[in-house]
Design a protein around this nucleic acid. Structure first.
Lengths: 333, 333
DNA sequence: CTGAAAGCGCTTACAG
DNA sequence: CTGAAAGCGCTTACAG
C-alpha cells in the first residue's frame, strides 16, 4: 500500500480511502491512485485489514460424509450463498460425529476466527456435541433438529414421509412397509415418525421398520428380507424407503425375487437423486431442495450476525415434494 | 494475549513462546501461562499471527459442479489432506468455466491471501482460463490436462477406457460403441481417446461416438439411439459409457427396447458410483479413487510450497481400476 | 530463561 | 479533500 502511495504521490491512507470507496477524495486523486494500483498489481492485504476491523469475513462450514448426495448438495448451496453475501467459506469435515471428532473440527474453525458457522448436523450425536462445545458462534445447523440452542434450517422430513405414505394409501395399499435410514440420523427418525403417524392417522397396521444404513447394499439386503416376508405370507404391497440409494438396492432385490415393481410391490424413495427418474422403473420419490436449504441456513446465519442479541431466531423449513413416477401403482388385485 | 500475560505475571512474548512451543521457557513458567490460558479461555488471534508471519495457513480450492459424483468426492479428499497437513481450506465454486467466471472465483481466493490453490479443472476452457490468470500461486490442477504450466493430479482416464474396451473385446465382441461425456471435458476426451486407440490397436471398426453430457437423461436418449441403430441392422453388442450416471439411463433405454443386458448388449460404465453394484444388472465399470486424487493433488501443492523454485514438478497419475460385474458378457451367439 | 522494541499492512478517529 | 498518529494482536530478532 505504501508503494502505491509513493507512486501516486499521496499518503497511504488516501490509498486506503480509494480502495474502500470512501467519499471525499478528489476525482483526480482517485484516478491517480487507481492507476498506481493497477500498475503495481496491488491487492489489499486482507489479513491486515481483518486485524484492524476485527472482521475476517470468513464463515465456517462443518460438512459430514460428502459421499452422500444430500450433504454434498447442501454444502454447494451454502458456498454459493456465502459468496453472494460477500463472505469466504472455510470448510472442515467431521467424519466422526463423536464429541472428540466434532471438537477437533470446530476447533479448526475457531482457530481461523470465523465470524459464524453453519454445521451440517444430521446426526443426533453430532448435534449434542455441537451444543456442548464453546465452538464458533453464531452457529446454525442444517437438518439438526430443534432445541439444541441454535437455529436450524432443513427440509420438512416428516411432511415428506407423510406425503409418500399418503400417496401409497391413496393408491389403495392397505399399509406401507418402511426401510429406514441410519438410526442415529435425525432425518431417518423424522421419516420413520412421519411414516408411522400417517399410517396411524389412517388407522392402518404399522409394521416394524427394517433398519437400513442409507447404502445401496443395505437396501438390497432389506429388499430381500421384504421378499422373504412376502413369501412367508405377509401382505407386502408397498414400501417407503428412506433414501433413493437404498431404493436402488431394493429394486434389485425385488427383481431378483421375481417380484414386479410396481405390479407386485410399489416402491417410493426419498431425495430424488439425478438417477431416480432413469431407474427401471422410474422411481417415485420425495425431492429435497438442498440448495434452498443451504440458502436458508445462510440467511439464518446472516441474520444472527446482524442482530446477535435477537433471541429465539425462527427455524427455517423447506417443504419436501413428492414426485410420482413409475414405481408406485395400485396393489395387485 | 496481554491479558494472559498479566494473569500469569509474565510478558506477552513469553506467552507467545509457550503458545508456539518454543524451548527455553522454565517449566514452571510454562505451567503458569498454560493455566492462565485455560482460565481465560484464550485463543491466539490467527489474523495477527498471519500478518506478522506472512503465512495465512489457508489453501484455496476451486470446485466445479458438485452435483457430479467425481468432483464432490475429490473435494472431500482435498479437504481431508489439507487438514492433515495443518492447513485451512477455503472453497469457491465456479459454476461458470468461462474466463470471467473463473477470474471472479480466483479473485475471491486471491483476496483471501491463500498460500496456494488446488483447482478441480475438468474442462478445457477452465484450464485455459486458469493458465491465463495471474491468480493464486502455486496452483495445482485436478484432472486438468498437462501443459498448462502447473502440475496436474488425476486418474489415468485413458488407461481406464482402454481396460474397459479390452475387457469387452476379450469377451468376444467385435467392436465397442461409445457414449461420450461432455465434449468440453478433458476426461470425456481422454476416455474417447483410450476407447478409440484400444479399438485401433486391435484392428477393429471404430464407430462414431454418441455425444452425451454426463446426465442420466442423455444416457437414456443415447441408449434409445443405440437400440435404433441395432434395429436398423448395425451390429451393436457392447457399449462403453463414459460415466455411470449415463449408464443408468442406457440400461433403462435398452430395457424398454426389449434388449437384454448383458444378453443382447454389454454395458460398461465409468466412476463406480455407490449405486453401480446394485443396479440391475450390477454394472461393470471403471473405478476412480477420488480420495487418492485429492491426496495426490495436495501433495503436489505442498511440494510446490516447499520448493517454489523447483521446475517441472512431476504430475501425479492414479490408476483406474476395472470392476467386472454383471452387465458385461460374451456377445449373443 | 525472559523482557523491551520494532514492525507486519492496514483502518480509524483527529487535525488541518 | 488529505495527512500524521495510534493501534489491531501477534512474532522476531536483540539484549540482558
Amino acid at each position: 500500500m505504501s508503494d502505491v502511495a509513493k507512486v501516486a504521490g499521496v499518503s497511504h491512507q488516501t490509498v486506503s480511502r480509494v480502495v474502500n470507496g470512501h467519499p471525499n477524495v478528489r476525482e483526480e486523486t482517485v484516478a491517480r491512485v487507481r492507476h498506481a494500483i493497477s500498475e503495481l498489481g496491488y491487492h489489499p492485504n486482507s489479513t491486515a485489514r481483518a486485524l484492524v476491523t476485527r472482521r475476517t469475513n470468513v464463515l465456517g462450514a462443518l460438512a459430514v460424509d460428502t459421499t452422500l448426495f444430500g450433504p454434498s448438495q447442501t454444502l454447494a448451496g451454502i458456498e454459493q450463498a456465502a459468496r453472494e453475501a460477500g463472505y469466504f467459506l472455510s470448510i472442515v469435515s467431521a467424519d466422526d460425529p463423536s464429541p472428540d471428532g466434532v471438537a477437533e473440527a470446530m476447533d479448526h474453525l475457531v482457530q481461523q476466527s470465523v465470524e459464524g458457522c453453519v454445521a451440517i448436523a444430521p446426526q443426533r450425536e453430532l448435534v449434542h456435541a455441537l451444543a456442548a462445545l464453546p465452538g464458533p458462534r453464531p452457529l446454525v445447523a442444517v437438518e439438526g433438529g430443534e432445541g439444541a440452542g441454535f437455529p436450524v434450517a432443513g427440509v420438512d422430513q416428516e411432511q415428506g414421509a407423510r406425503d409418500a405414505v399418503r400417496h401409497l394409501l391413496d393408491l389403495g395399499h392397505r399399509t406401507v412397509h418402511h426401510i429406514s435410514g441410519r438410526s442415529d440420523w435425525l432425518e431417518a427418525e423424522a421419516r420413520v415418525h412421519g411414516w408411522r403417524e400417517e399410517l396411524r392417522a389412517a388407522g392402518r397396521t404399522v409394521t416394524e421398520p427394517l433398519p437400513g444404513d442409507w447404502s445401496p447394499r443395505s437396501g438390497y439386503e432389506l429388499g430381500r428380507r421384504l421378499a422373504e416376508l412376502r413369501a412367508e405370507g405377509e401382505e407386502v404391497t408397498a414400501v417407503f424407503v428412506a433414501n433413493d440409494q437404498m431404493a436402488v438396492g431394493v429394486l434389485k432385490a425385488l427383481h431378483e425375487a421375481g417380484l414386479g415393481v410396481p405390479g407386485d410391490v410399489s416402491v417410493v424413495g426419498f431425495d430424488d437423486i439425478p438417477e431416480a427418474a432413469y431407474l427401471t422403473p422410474a422411481l417415485t420419490t420425495v425431492a429435497q431442495d438442498f440448495t434452498r436449504v443451504g440458502t436458508a441456513a445462510l440467511e439464518l446465519l446472516l441474520g444472527a450476525l446482524d442482530a446477535p442479541s435477537a433471541d429465539a431466531p425462527a427455524d427455517r423449513t423447506v417443504p419436501a415434494v413428492l414426485r410420482v413416477r413409475d414405481s408406485s401403482a395400485p396393489p395387485p388385485a
